[in-house]
């Protein structure tokens, strides 16, 4: 069954810092739908590595600035 991913992200903050880039704008720049950007932001979908790198490239930051994964306790 689907469950919320443990991967977190700062896409919303990065969009805000990038002149309040819209979800639709980000979606068109990385070649996915706006609903997919929403799902990624809300942690309902973990994107492929390729899309993850594309998102990082759009904001001009390393991948780990966009996505984080909690270390095992």
């Amino acid at each position: 069954m689907a469950k919320k991913t443990r991967i977190t992200n700062d896409i919303r903050t990065l969009r805000f810092l990038a002149d309040e880039m819209t979800q639709a704008d980000l979606a068109s720049r990385i070649g996915v739908t706006r609903q997919t950007v929403i799902a990624i932001e809300q942690g309902r979908y973990s994107p492929s590595l390729e899309v993850a790198f594309q998102i990082a490239n759009v904001f001009g930051v390393p991948l780990e600035k966009v996505f984080q994964y909690p270390e095992e306790a």
Partner: peptide, 9 residues
């Protein structure tokens, strides 16, 4: 109409 399919679809 955005009927394009991406990797999530």
């Amino acid at each position: 109409v955005d009927d394009a399919k991406d990797e999530r679809d």
